[in-house]
Simulated assay, not measured.
Amino acid sequence: MHDTLSRTAVPETADATGPELLEAGFRLVGAASDVPMLEGRRATVDGQRVAVFRLPAGFAAIDAHCPHRAGPLYDGLVADGCVTCPLHNWRIDLASGRVAGQEQVVGVHEVIERAGQLYVRLGASACDRGGDCDHAGEPAAGAA
């Protein structure tokens, strides 16, 4: 999997199988074992890059890039339910997408693990909420 996931809303049946998850809008992104504890990985879901993290309580997924200078959030340090951008230390809450001390937020996506596989369903990304992004869901060059 090498790249990884996101977070949003669970289908009504908590026992949903792979085909049922796909019908509900989730996309298979890889094996859960490919995401080490308290680390992130990146993936592309329906053309949008996301970062997937393994936390003690499960998985979380957000947009892959920091709203400050497009730092790779999947390479950030994870602690206390947050990831710290490796470029300029902006701290992002993995549950809400809120950036500590800033007005910016990143998109939060839903991640489900079934039979050792991770599925992600895209939520509203920062681009969908009026952020400055290009067509691939990445911040536009020069966005500050």
Score class of each variant (00 low, 15 high):
residue 3 D to H: 12
residue 4 T to W: 04
residue 4 T to D: 02
residue 4 T to A: 13
residue 6 S to P: 07
residue 6 S to I: 09
residue 8 T to S: 15
residue 8 T to L: 14
residue 9 A to E: 15
residue 10 V to K: 06
residue 10 V to Y: 09
residue 10 V to W: 05
residue 12 E to C: 07
residue 15 D to T: 11
residue 15 D to W: 02
residue 16 A to R: 07
residue 16 A to M: 04
residue 18 G to K: 15
residue 18 G to H: 15
residue 19 P to C: 03
residue 19 P to T: 01
residue 19 P to N: 04
residue 20 E to T: 05
residue 21 L to R: 08
residue 22 L to H: 04
residue 22 L to I: 09
residue 22 L to V: 08
residue 22 L to P: 02
residue 23 E to T: 10
residue 26 F to Y: 15
residue 26 F to A: 02
residue 27 R to T: 03
residue 28 L to E: 10
residue 28 L to D: 06
residue 31 A to H: 14
residue 31 A to L: 14
residue 32 A to M: 03
residue 36 P to Y: 01
residue 37 M to T: 01
residue 39 E to F: 00
residue 40 G to K: 01
residue 41 R to A: 06
residue 41 R to D: 00
residue 46 D to K: 08
residue 47 G to T: 04
residue 47 G to E: 04
residue 48 Q to T: 08
residue 48 Q to Y: 09
residue 49 R to H: 12
residue 49 R to E: 08
residue 54 R to D: 00
residue 60 A to H: 00
residue 61 A to C: 10
residue 62 I to C: 11
residue 64 A to G: 08
residue 64 A to L: 11
residue 64 A to C: 06
residue 65 H to C: 10
residue 66 C to K: 12
residue 69 R to E: 05
residue 69 R to L: 07
residue 70 A to D: 01
residue 72 P to V: 06
residue 74 Y to N: 12
residue 76 G to P: 02
residue 76 G to S: 05
residue 76 G to M: 06
residue 77 L to V: 13
residue 79 A to F: 04
residue 79 A to R: 10
residue 82 C to A: 13
residue 82 C to N: 11
residue 83 V to N: 05
residue 84 T to S: 08
residue 88 H to M: 02
residue 90 W to V: 04
residue 90 W to P: 08
residue 91 R to K: 13
residue 93 D to R: 11
residue 93 D to G: 06
residue 93 D to N: 15
residue 94 L to H: 07
residue 94 L to E: 04
residue 94 L to Y: 05
residue 96 S to I: 06
residue 96 S to A: 07
residue 97 G to N: 08
residue 98 R to H: 14
residue 98 R to Q: 15
residue 100 A to S: 14
residue 100 A to F: 11
residue 101 G to W: 03
residue 102 Q to D: 15
residue 103 E to C: 07
residue 103 E to G: 15
residue 104 Q to Y: 07
residue 104 Q to V: 02
residue 104 Q to S: 11
residue 105 V to H: 14
residue 105 V to G: 07
residue 109 H to L: 11
residue 110 E to W: 06
residue 110 E to A: 14
residue 111 V to G: 12
residue 111 V to P: 06
residue 112 I to W: 01
residue 112 I to Y: 02
residue 112 I to V: 15
residue 112 I to Q: 04
residue 113 E to W: 01
residue 113 E to D: 05
residue 114 R to V: 14
residue 115 A to C: 11
residue 116 G to H: 08
residue 117 Q to C: 12
residue 117 Q to T: 05
residue 117 Q to I: 04
residue 119 Y to C: 02
residue 119 Y to V: 00
residue 120 V to L: 07
residue 121 R to T: 05
residue 121 R to W: 11
residue 121 R to H: 10
residue 122 L to I: 04
residue 124 A to T: 13
residue 124 A to E: 15
residue 125 S to W: 11
residue 127 C to Q: 14
residue 130 G to Y: 06
residue 131 G to R: 06
residue 133 C to Q: 03
residue 133 C to Y: 15
residue 133 C to L: 09
residue 133 C to K: 03
residue 134 D to C: 12
residue 135 H to N: 12
residue 135 H to W: 13
residue 136 A to M: 11
residue 137 G to E: 09
residue 140 A to H: 08
residue 140 A to V: 07
residue 143 A to R: 15
residue 144 A to W: 11
residue 144 A to T: 08
